[in-house]
Design a protein around this nucleic acid. Sequence first.
DNA 1: GCCCAGATACGAACACTTCGCATCTGCGAA
DNA 2: TTCGCAGATGCGAAGTGTTCGTATCTGGGC
Lengths: 145, 145
Amino acid sequence: MSITAARAIEALRAEGRRITTARRTIIELLGATHDHLTADHIATAVQQAHPEIHVSTVYRTLESLDEWGLVEHVHRGQGAAFFHLAASHPHMVCEECGRVIDVPGDEFEALVARVRDVYGFDIDVAHNALMGRCLVHQPRGHSLA
Amino acid sequence: MSITAARAIEALRAEGRRITTARRTIIELLGATHDHLTADHIATAVQQAHPEIHVSTVYRTLESLDEWGLVEHVHRGQGAAFFHLAASHPHMVCEECGRVIDVPGDEFEALVARVRDVYGFDIDVAHNALMGRCLVHQPRGHSLA
DNA sequence: GCCCAGATACGAACACTTCGCATCTGCGAA
DNA sequence: TTCGCAGATGCGAAGTGTTCGTATCTGGGC
Protein backbone atom coordinates (compact mmCIF):
# COMPACT_ATOMS: atom_id res chain seq x y z
CA MET A 1 0.00 0.00 0.00
CA SER A 2 1.30 3.46 -0.81
CA ILE A 3 2.27 5.76 2.01
CA THR A 4 -0.44 8.22 1.08
CA ALA A 5 -3.11 5.53 1.10
CA ALA A 6 -1.92 4.39 4.51
CA ARG A 7 -2.15 7.94 5.72
CA ALA A 8 -5.67 8.34 4.41
CA ILE A 9 -6.78 5.21 6.22
CA GLU A 10 -5.04 6.39 9.36
CA ALA A 11 -6.93 9.66 9.04
CA LEU A 12 -10.22 7.78 8.84
CA ARG A 13 -9.38 5.86 11.98
CA ALA A 14 -8.23 9.00 13.79
CA GLU A 15 -11.57 10.67 13.12
CA GLY A 16 -13.46 7.64 14.39
CA ARG A 17 -14.85 6.70 10.96
CA ARG A 18 -15.39 3.12 9.94
CA ILE A 19 -12.78 1.33 7.88
CA THR A 20 -14.96 -0.62 5.49
CA THR A 21 -13.97 -2.86 2.61
CA ALA A 22 -15.23 -0.32 0.10
CA ARG A 23 -13.28 2.52 1.66
CA ARG A 24 -10.09 0.56 2.07
CA THR A 25 -10.22 -0.85 -1.44
CA ILE A 26 -10.93 2.51 -3.06
CA ILE A 27 -8.20 4.28 -1.12
CA GLU A 28 -5.67 1.57 -1.90
CA LEU A 29 -6.60 1.68 -5.55
CA LEU A 30 -6.18 5.44 -5.73
CA GLY A 31 -2.92 5.20 -3.83
CA ALA A 32 -1.57 2.56 -6.17
CA THR A 33 -2.05 4.47 -9.41
CA HIS A 34 -1.14 7.81 -10.87
CA ASP A 35 -3.87 7.55 -13.45
CA HIS A 36 -6.85 9.82 -13.37
CA LEU A 37 -9.77 7.50 -12.72
CA THR A 38 -13.47 8.17 -13.14
CA ALA A 39 -15.94 6.81 -10.61
CA ASP A 40 -16.88 4.18 -13.12
CA HIS A 41 -13.28 3.07 -13.66
CA ILE A 42 -12.89 2.88 -9.93
CA ALA A 43 -16.06 0.83 -9.54
CA THR A 44 -14.93 -1.61 -12.22
CA ALA A 45 -11.50 -2.03 -10.70
CA VAL A 46 -12.89 -2.38 -7.19
CA GLN A 47 -15.37 -5.00 -8.32
CA GLN A 48 -12.60 -7.22 -9.64
CA ALA A 49 -11.54 -7.79 -6.05
CA HIS A 50 -14.95 -7.33 -4.43
CA PRO A 51 -17.82 -7.92 -6.83
CA GLU A 52 -20.39 -7.15 -4.16
CA ILE A 53 -19.37 -3.50 -3.95
CA HIS A 54 -21.99 -1.51 -5.78
CA VAL A 55 -21.39 1.49 -8.04
CA SER A 56 -23.55 3.68 -5.86
CA THR A 57 -21.37 2.76 -2.90
CA VAL A 58 -18.35 3.85 -4.88
CA TYR A 59 -19.99 7.20 -5.60
CA ARG A 60 -21.05 7.63 -1.98
CA THR A 61 -17.66 6.60 -0.67
CA LEU A 62 -15.85 8.96 -2.99
CA GLU A 63 -18.22 11.75 -1.98
CA SER A 64 -17.54 11.12 1.70
CA LEU A 65 -13.79 10.85 1.27
CA ASP A 66 -13.90 14.05 -0.76
CA GLU A 67 -15.88 15.83 1.93
CA TRP A 68 -13.36 14.69 4.53
CA GLY A 69 -10.49 15.98 2.42
CA LEU A 70 -8.92 12.59 1.68
CA VAL A 71 -9.66 12.46 -2.03
CA GLU A 72 -10.43 15.13 -4.62
CA HIS A 73 -12.43 15.16 -7.80
CA VAL A 74 -11.75 17.18 -10.92
CA HIS A 75 -14.34 18.04 -13.52
CA ARG A 76 -13.40 17.59 -17.12
CA GLY A 77 -15.48 19.45 -19.70
CA GLN A 78 -18.29 17.10 -20.65
CA GLY A 79 -17.15 13.66 -19.54
CA ALA A 80 -17.09 12.13 -16.10
CA ALA A 81 -15.15 13.70 -13.27
CA PHE A 82 -11.95 11.95 -12.20
CA PHE A 83 -10.68 11.23 -8.72
CA HIS A 84 -7.36 10.97 -6.91
CA LEU A 85 -6.01 11.09 -3.41
CA ALA A 86 -5.88 14.63 -2.05
CA ALA A 87 -3.09 16.58 -3.70
CA SER A 88 -4.73 19.86 -4.76
CA HIS A 89 -2.94 20.73 -7.93
CA PRO A 90 -4.47 21.91 -11.20
CA HIS A 91 -4.98 19.61 -14.18
CA MET A 92 -4.97 20.36 -17.87
CA VAL A 93 -6.97 18.14 -20.20
CA CYS A 94 -6.40 17.99 -23.95
CA GLU A 95 -9.70 18.45 -25.77
CA GLU A 96 -8.46 16.24 -28.58
CA CYS A 97 -6.93 13.23 -26.90
CA GLY A 98 -8.17 13.51 -23.31
CA ARG A 99 -4.64 13.38 -21.98
CA VAL A 100 -4.35 14.78 -18.46
CA ILE A 101 -1.35 16.86 -17.45
CA ASP A 102 -0.66 17.73 -13.82
CA VAL A 103 0.60 21.21 -13.05
CA PRO A 104 2.18 22.37 -9.82
CA GLY A 105 -0.17 24.75 -8.03
CA ASP A 106 2.46 27.45 -7.62
CA GLU A 107 2.26 28.23 -11.33
CA PHE A 108 -1.10 29.75 -10.46
CA GLU A 109 -0.18 31.61 -7.29
CA ALA A 110 0.23 35.02 -8.87
CA LEU A 111 -3.04 34.73 -10.75
CA VAL A 112 -4.95 33.46 -7.73
CA ALA A 113 -3.58 36.31 -5.58
CA ARG A 114 -4.42 38.93 -8.14
CA VAL A 115 -7.94 37.62 -8.69
CA ARG A 116 -8.51 37.58 -4.95
CA ASP A 117 -7.37 41.19 -4.66
CA VAL A 118 -9.10 42.59 -7.70
CA TYR A 119 -12.26 40.49 -7.95
CA GLY A 120 -12.70 39.29 -4.38
CA PHE A 121 -12.91 35.75 -5.70
CA ASP A 122 -11.00 32.84 -4.27
CA ILE A 123 -10.21 30.46 -7.12
CA ASP A 124 -9.98 26.74 -6.37
CA VAL A 125 -7.60 25.90 -9.20
CA ALA A 126 -7.86 22.18 -8.61
CA HIS A 127 -11.61 21.79 -8.94
CA ASN A 128 -12.11 22.17 -12.67
CA ALA A 129 -9.58 21.04 -15.19
CA LEU A 130 -8.25 23.59 -17.62
CA MET A 131 -9.17 22.53 -21.13
CA GLY A 132 -6.97 23.13 -24.14
CA ARG A 133 -4.63 21.34 -26.48
CA CYS A 134 -1.50 19.40 -25.74
CA LEU A 135 1.52 19.93 -27.91
CA VAL A 136 0.71 17.24 -30.45
CA HIS A 137 -2.79 18.64 -30.97
CA GLN A 138 -2.11 22.32 -31.35
CA PRO A 139 -3.49 24.12 -34.40
CA ARG A 140 -1.16 23.96 -37.45
CA GLY A 141 1.10 21.50 -35.64
CA HIS A 142 2.80 24.22 -33.62
CA SER A 143 5.74 22.71 -31.81
CA LEU A 144 8.39 23.95 -29.44
CA ALA A 145 11.09 23.74 -32.09
CA MET B 1 -32.05 43.37 -31.25
CA SER B 2 -28.55 43.81 -29.89
CA ILE B 3 -25.75 44.69 -32.25
CA THR B 4 -23.96 41.44 -31.53
CA ALA B 5 -27.05 39.37 -32.26
CA ALA B 6 -27.51 41.23 -35.53
CA ARG B 7 -23.90 40.48 -36.40
CA ALA B 8 -24.31 36.81 -35.61
CA ILE B 9 -27.34 36.57 -37.89
CA GLU B 10 -25.47 38.45 -40.57
CA ALA B 11 -22.64 35.96 -40.24
CA LEU B 12 -25.09 33.09 -40.74
CA ARG B 13 -26.42 34.70 -43.89
CA ALA B 14 -22.93 35.46 -45.17
CA GLU B 15 -21.98 31.81 -44.87
CA GLY B 16 -25.10 30.74 -46.70
CA ARG B 17 -26.69 29.08 -43.69
CA ARG B 18 -30.42 29.15 -43.14
CA ILE B 19 -31.95 31.73 -40.86
CA THR B 20 -34.56 29.63 -39.05
CA THR B 21 -36.94 30.62 -36.30
CA ALA B 22 -34.99 28.57 -33.78
CA ARG B 23 -31.67 30.13 -34.72
CA ARG B 24 -32.97 33.66 -34.82
CA THR B 25 -34.84 33.33 -31.52
CA ILE B 26 -31.88 31.79 -29.71
CA ILE B 27 -29.41 34.35 -31.01
CA GLU B 28 -31.73 37.23 -30.13
CA LEU B 29 -32.26 35.81 -26.67
CA LEU B 30 -28.54 35.47 -26.06
CA GLY B 31 -27.95 38.95 -27.43
CA ALA B 32 -30.62 40.46 -25.19
CA THR B 33 -29.25 39.19 -21.89
CA HIS B 34 -26.02 39.24 -19.99
CA ASP B 35 -27.10 36.29 -17.89
CA HIS B 36 -25.39 32.95 -18.21
CA LEU B 37 -28.07 30.64 -19.55
CA THR B 38 -28.10 26.87 -19.66
CA ALA B 39 -29.52 25.06 -22.68
CA ASP B 40 -32.58 24.30 -20.61
CA HIS B 41 -33.13 27.93 -19.65
CA ILE B 42 -32.74 28.86 -23.27
CA ALA B 43 -35.24 26.22 -24.34
CA THR B 44 -37.78 27.43 -21.78
CA ALA B 45 -37.39 31.06 -22.79
CA VAL B 46 -37.51 30.24 -26.48
CA GLN B 47 -40.64 28.16 -26.01
CA GLN B 48 -42.51 31.11 -24.53
CA ALA B 49 -42.42 32.74 -27.92
CA HIS B 50 -42.35 29.54 -30.01
CA PRO B 51 -43.74 26.53 -28.14
CA GLU B 52 -43.09 24.25 -31.10
CA ILE B 53 -39.30 24.59 -30.77
CA HIS B 54 -38.03 21.39 -29.18
CA VAL B 55 -35.30 21.09 -26.55
CA SER B 56 -33.24 18.88 -28.80
CA THR B 57 -33.41 21.57 -31.48
CA VAL B 58 -32.08 24.04 -28.94
CA TYR B 59 -29.18 21.71 -28.19
CA ARG B 60 -28.46 21.09 -31.84
CA THR B 61 -28.74 24.75 -32.71
CA LEU B 62 -26.41 25.75 -29.89
CA GLU B 63 -23.96 23.08 -30.97
CA SER B 64 -23.99 24.35 -34.54
CA LEU B 65 -23.65 28.00 -33.56
CA ASP B 66 -20.83 26.98 -31.25
CA GLU B 67 -19.10 25.10 -34.04
CA TRP B 68 -19.43 28.13 -36.32
CA GLY B 69 -17.93 30.38 -33.67
CA LEU B 70 -21.06 32.45 -33.03
CA VAL B 71 -21.78 31.23 -29.51
CA GLU B 72 -19.66 29.62 -26.83
CA HIS B 73 -20.39 27.26 -23.99
CA VAL B 74 -18.73 27.09 -20.61
CA HIS B 75 -18.71 24.05 -18.36
CA ARG B 76 -19.50 24.60 -14.73
CA GLY B 77 -18.41 21.91 -12.28
CA GLN B 78 -21.29 19.46 -12.05
CA GLY B 79 -24.31 21.34 -13.36
CA ALA B 80 -25.30 22.18 -16.90
CA ALA B 81 -23.02 24.15 -19.19
CA PHE B 82 -24.04 27.71 -19.95
CA PHE B 83 -24.04 29.57 -23.25
CA HIS B 84 -23.49 33.10 -24.50
CA LEU B 85 -22.66 34.88 -27.74
CA ALA B 86 -19.01 34.49 -28.66
CA ALA B 87 -16.82 36.58 -26.38
CA SER B 88 -14.04 34.21 -25.25
CA HIS B 89 -13.31 35.35 -21.75
CA PRO B 90 -12.90 33.21 -18.64
CA HIS B 91 -15.66 32.78 -16.07
CA MET B 92 -15.47 32.18 -12.35
CA VAL B 93 -18.35 30.36 -10.66
CA CYS B 94 -18.95 30.45 -6.91
CA GLU B 95 -19.34 26.93 -5.57
CA GLU B 96 -21.70 28.19 -2.88
CA CYS B 97 -24.13 30.47 -4.68
CA GLY B 98 -23.51 29.68 -8.35
CA ARG B 99 -22.82 33.32 -9.12
CA VAL B 100 -20.89 33.79 -12.36
CA ILE B 101 -18.20 36.43 -12.64
CA ASP B 102 -16.70 37.40 -15.98
CA VAL B 103 -12.97 38.03 -16.11
CA PRO B 104 -11.08 39.76 -18.90
CA GLY B 105 -8.91 37.26 -20.72
CA ASP B 106 -5.76 39.35 -20.38
CA GLU B 107 -5.59 38.53 -16.67
CA PHE B 108 -4.57 35.08 -17.85
CA GLU B 109 -2.13 36.03 -20.57
CA ALA B 110 1.03 35.57 -18.51
CA LEU B 111 -0.12 32.19 -17.21
CA VAL B 112 -1.20 30.96 -20.63
CA ALA B 113 2.12 32.02 -22.16
CA ARG B 114 4.13 30.38 -19.44
CA VAL B 115 2.17 27.13 -19.61
CA ARG B 116 2.62 27.06 -23.36
CA ASP B 117 6.37 27.54 -23.02
CA VAL B 118 6.99 25.19 -20.12
CA TYR B 119 4.37 22.48 -20.63
CA GLY B 120 3.67 22.74 -24.33
CA PHE B 121 -0.02 23.03 -23.54
CA ASP B 122 -2.31 25.62 -25.03
CA ILE B 123 -4.94 26.49 -22.44
CA ASP B 124 -8.38 27.51 -23.61
CA VAL B 125 -9.24 29.64 -20.57
CA ALA B 126 -12.83 30.19 -21.66
CA HIS B 127 -13.90 26.57 -21.97
CA ASN B 128 -14.18 25.53 -18.35
CA ALA B 129 -15.23 27.90 -15.62
CA LEU B 130 -12.87 28.39 -12.70
CA MET B 131 -14.59 27.23 -9.53
CA GLY B 132 -14.07 28.89 -6.18
CA ARG B 133 -15.78 31.21 -3.73
CA CYS B 134 -17.03 34.73 -4.22
CA LEU B 135 -16.31 37.29 -1.55
CA VAL B 136 -19.45 36.68 0.48
CA HIS B 137 -18.78 32.95 0.63
CA GLN B 138 -15.14 32.83 1.54
CA PRO B 139 -14.09 30.77 4.56
CA ARG B 140 -14.38 32.71 7.86
CA GLY B 141 -16.16 35.58 6.12
CA HIS B 142 -12.92 36.98 4.80
CA SER B 143 -13.63 40.36 3.24
CA LEU B 144 -11.58 43.03 1.56
CA ALA B 145 -11.88 45.41 4.51
C1' DG C 1 -44.57 28.28 -56.86
C1' DC C 2 -41.26 24.11 -56.89
C1' DC C 3 -37.67 21.61 -55.03
C1' DC C 4 -34.43 19.54 -51.96
C1' DA C 5 -30.48 19.88 -48.78
C1' DG C 6 -30.54 21.03 -44.58
C1' DA C 7 -33.20 21.88 -40.35
C1' DT C 8 -36.69 20.41 -37.22
C1' DA C 9 -40.07 17.83 -33.91
C1' DC C 10 -40.52 14.11 -31.25
C1' DG C 11 -39.35 10.64 -28.32
C1' DA C 12 -36.22 7.22 -27.05
C1' DA C 13 -31.76 6.34 -25.50
C1' DC C 14 -27.64 7.64 -23.31
C1' DA C 15 -24.00 8.67 -19.69
C1' DC C 16 -23.25 10.08 -15.31
C1' DT C 17 -24.90 10.67 -10.81
C1' DT C 18 -28.16 10.70 -6.88
C1' DC C 19 -31.77 8.81 -3.98
C1' DG C 20 -34.83 5.77 -0.96
C1' DC C 21 -35.07 2.13 1.66
C1' DA C 22 -34.28 -2.38 3.58
C1' DT C 23 -30.42 -4.85 5.16
C1' DC C 24 -25.99 -5.41 6.98
C1' DT C 25 -21.62 -4.46 9.65
C1' DG C 26 -17.71 -2.10 12.19
C1' DC C 27 -16.63 -1.22 16.42
C1' DG C 28 -17.40 0.50 21.22
C1' DA C 29 -19.66 -1.09 25.36
C1' DA C 30 -21.09 -4.73 28.32
C1' DT D 1 -17.40 -12.88 23.19
C1' DT D 2 -21.59 -11.17 22.22
C1' DC D 3 -24.74 -7.19 21.70
C1' DG D 4 -26.57 -2.94 19.91
C1' DC D 5 -26.95 0.51 16.83
C1' DA D 6 -25.32 4.47 14.07
C1' DG D 7 -23.56 4.47 10.10
C1' DA D 8 -22.46 2.08 5.76
C1' DT D 9 -23.99 -0.70 2.03
C1' DG D 10 -26.66 -3.23 -1.88
C1' DC D 11 -29.93 -2.70 -5.08
C1' DG D 12 -32.79 -0.66 -8.21
C1' DA D 13 -35.23 3.21 -9.61
C1' DA D 14 -35.19 7.91 -10.65
C1' DG D 15 -33.04 12.34 -11.99
C1' DT D 16 -30.38 15.43 -14.87
C1' DG D 17 -28.16 16.95 -18.80
C1' DT D 18 -27.35 15.68 -23.40
C1' DT D 19 -27.33 13.05 -27.85
C1' DC D 20 -29.37 10.31 -31.49
C1' DG D 21 -32.58 8.21 -35.16
C1' DT D 22 -36.01 9.06 -38.08
C1' DA D 23 -39.90 10.94 -40.33
C1' DT D 24 -41.39 15.36 -41.58
C1' DC D 25 -40.95 20.09 -42.72
C1' DT D 26 -39.04 24.49 -44.68
C1' DG D 27 -35.74 28.43 -46.22
C1' DG D 28 -34.32 30.24 -50.01
C1' DG D 29 -32.26 29.44 -54.70
C1' DC D 30 -34.29 28.51 -59.09
